[in-house]
Design a binder for these strands. Structure first.
Lengths: 337, 337
DNA sequence: AATCCTATTTACAACGTTGTAAATGTAAAC
DNA sequence: GTTTACATTTACAACGTTGTAAATAGGATT
């Protein structure tokens, strides 16, 4: 069906290798030959067979991206950014969804499905620090999220603690004293939830405000529905608060919906802030204040680091793993004014 | 680095082909041999090289999915569903973003990047009916959207017209008479926007309501921002209306935000309905009525049809192209009660 | 015109896999 | 103890590409 180098070579009356040289812009090809071959290529609509190329070169031109779920807006926007960044490096992106399930995450890391990939950008959610060893894989891997695993792996991460502290400080600066948190994970010590909660605690401590566990809304996942339930639960428990910090925007938006249902005025009665700077937050009513964790830069850096690892694979020894920390930006909007 | 069949064969003391037979569960392998080979496989952590397999078999195990942008929630949720459906067929998904740009869409169809793909699920947005010829490609292709192109291509599509008519009818049934539309595309005749607008017109006509171009809000893209601007513009023009039909949810949510800013009560003063049944719509305030176009079924069907085409490639002649029409469901929520 | 140097082109092998066909082994039937 | 039938294993080629090294061509130099 599809034309091969051989077909083009026959048509142009040259050897297969010469066609290959033309295709790959090899320098020592006579101009006239190049023209003739190019003509044959165009005529036959020749396109290189990627499998064969991959077999010969050991490279596929594909990078894997593993996220919990694309239907979580944060990951959709992240994937968007990763695909765009990969394109700039001439790579194409294959997306795997883990469902934030620990077992599926671990399985994925050694899945044969990754065989057609030159490297992986992995955003784990279910794995814990006990699972560090699974990250010691033989292919290029960049992990998104804190260096919580200890293993020799490259990480690209946002300043969870600092950003959460800044968000909390903003609420405090607006005069809020009883700041509820929506989205903590019970017992977690290493994930994003735990780190953001830590930032919150640091801000309280710095301002001399007491920490009250009553104000912490625990959830299982970070879906909108969880934010809604946690907020509703807190209201029903009769907890007093004058601000809400959603550990991500989705949770904050879910919480905001409950607050408005319960006739709290935002931001007059309750200030609300989120985390992630989803596109949506600009259009909620009121527009949600949030923290931009530097998503675009995270995606770009992750791809760049991964490409360095892929290209450096022939190097004598593995370079020391690095941790890139991306800067955040506070985005104040109507919900905290 | 990675173990090959040869390595395993050496270790197990058998031929390469026998190992291959074990790997592929070929029937005629003695139990003892199988065990021994399996042991070697495990010991060497052998994983088949997909490029080599692809070269030999002409299959990559990858399907392509081309969408405008993952940061548009509809496409993120669609991609989620496609990935899950593909997984059930043992396939993995490579995602391309076209940015709804006509040229990029056309280029993509003949891009060598697709070489490592067994087939493509394509959701065009920028291409028009003049571009039909570009869809006549040599690889399995399933187009999402109306059979607007005429070419011999499989389509999986939602009932845009019927669903839009139903949405409009719902508003009419709630007593609304001046129904604004947000999201029409000026001059378009074949895309989703045009079809949904047609459904709207049909519903008006059936109810004996006049069509008024004043009530049509034109936009460029279907981003939240466009919905917001179109709604704002209509209010500023002083157009009277008692309902809004957002041609998709994102537009409707953007419009709703403007309405609320302008102190319209929803649904008392203005009823609002969207289209797509995004997860978000359940959590807006008020929760947005919408139409579920059958996204999950669209994804499943598209993957199934594509797999049939991929598996049937050896068949003597191409089967006639089909058009699958997926059923929709009205989801009434608070914004129209 | 013979010689040498470099530019251009070529043949061949190899990447790891699997289909084909042929070879070997095993056990039952005679 | 042969033959026969079938189960199991094997060698070999081929998929389409590119690196290596060797072959050839074309000029420039003498």
């Amino acid at each position: 069906m599809a034309a091969t180098l051989q077909d083009v070579a026959n048509l142009a009356g040259v050897s297969v290798k010469t066609v290959s040289n033309v295709v790959n812009n090899y320098t020592h090809v006579r101009a006239t030959t190049r023209t003739r071959v190019q003509g044959a290529i165009d005529q036959l609509k020749y396109q290189p067979n990627m499998s064969a190329r991959g077999l010969r070169s050991g490279r596929t031109g594909v990078i894997g991206l593993a996220v919990p779920e694309l239907s979580l807006s944060y990951f959709a926007e992240l994937a968007d950014a990763v695909i765009k960044a990969a394109e700039r490096h001439g790579m194409v992106v294959l997306i795997e969804q883990t469902g934030a399930d620990r077992k599926r995450e671990i399985d994925l890391l050694s899945s044969p499905r990754l065989q057609l990939t030159d490297g992986l950008i992995f955003s784990p959610l279910g794995m814990g620090s006990d699972d560090a060893s699974h990250l010691d894989v033989s292919y290029p891997l960049v992990v998104l999220g804190e260096r919580i695993f200890g293993g020799p792996v490259d990480h690209v991460t946002m300043k969870n603690i600092d950003a959460a502290r800044a968000a909390t400080e903003l609420l405090i600066a607006r005069g809020r004293k009883r700041i509820a948190v929506i989205g903590a994970h019970e017992g977690e010590v290493v994930g994003s939830a735990a780190l953001r909660l830590q930032g919150y605690k640091e801000a309280l401590a710095a301002a001399g405000l007491p920490y009250d566990d009553e104000l912490i809304g625990y959830v299982g996942l970070w879906h909108r529905h969880d934010g809604l339930m946690a907020m509703r639960n807190m209201i029903e428990r009769g907890v007093e608060f004058d601000a809400v910090f959603g550990l991500n925007d989705t949770l904050a938006l879910g919480a905001m919906r409950v607050l408005q249902e319960a006739h709290f005025k935002i931001p007059d009665d309750v200030s609300v802030i989120g985390f992630d700077d989803l596109d949506e937050t600009q259009y909620s009513l009121p527009a949600l204040s949030t923290v931009d964790p530097g998503r675009a830069e995270i995606a770009e850096t992750a791809v760049r680091v991964l490409m360095e690892r892929i290209n450096g694979q022939t190097a004598p020894k593995k370079p020391a793993p690095v941790e890139y920390l991306v800067d955040f930006t506070l985005r104040e909007r109507e919900s905290t004014l």
